[in-house]
Design a protein around this nucleic acid. Sequence first.
DNA 1: GGATTTACTCTGTAATTCAGAGTTTATTAC
DNA 2: GTAATAAACTCTGAATTACAGAGTAAATCC
Lengths: 110, 110
Amino acid sequence: MEALDPLLHQPLRTQLAAFLAGAGEASFTELKRNLQVSDGNLESHLKKLIAADYVSLRRIEGPGRAQTSYSLTPTGLDALQRYIKALQKLLPLGDRDAAEGTWNGQATAG
Amino acid sequence: MEALDPLLHQPLRTQLAAFLAGAGEASFTELKRNLQVSDGNLESHLKKLIAADYVSLRRIEGPGRAQTSYSLTPTGLDALQRYIKALQKLLPLGDRDAAEGTWNGQATAG
DNA sequence: GGATTTACTCTGTAATTCAGAGTTTATTAC
DNA sequence: GTAATAAACTCTGAATTACAGAGTAAATCC
């Protein structure tokens, strides 16, 4: 059985990675709004992803206060992609062939 | 953004639930072997799933020492199914339509 | 120029995760 | 029959993680 990247397999961090993958990049505040998370919690998870080089930051000096833009690194995107493959192997997720076995009567149709 | 059931969205518990869904039921030892996990760790996660009524146990009195057989409850299967739907919404997982947006060039093809 | 807001960062607490030691019941060797 | 081994868990405690709210610094509003 394949292990699920523990860095990505955590509620907030999965959402963070998915959001960044979809959005390309986002500011602290955008992330906070979209993920509905407290400041401290957001920054601690962001920090962890940055430490793993899954996320990079870019300082944006605009008019007004400087902001940081966060985005997935190639490493992060790759990890996310491999994480998704692992999920597909583990669970029946539409991409049926990938799942090692499909469940009883129920499959994925609900 | 939809939250991911924190009970299921944890590496060992996701695997546990997926395995039980696939196998129907399994003994402590089977689970231990398949998930490659320590006794203590397995029992603590199992306990958590049982407390949530995601997993039920059944005592099996055979020849030799009695064993416990673990399986998903209807509640657990339902939760797993909803968890999978949430994942599908969040990530591009083969079932493409469900994902809120598909990523840049990369999509799911590797 | 004082009050507010924005954009984070720090700190401490609570909860979670985990390994290994402990317990109980059965089986095998003698 | 009993000592040693094994199976099937359960308990304990330490390490890590997750989280909220308080703190800080810079900009904007009045």
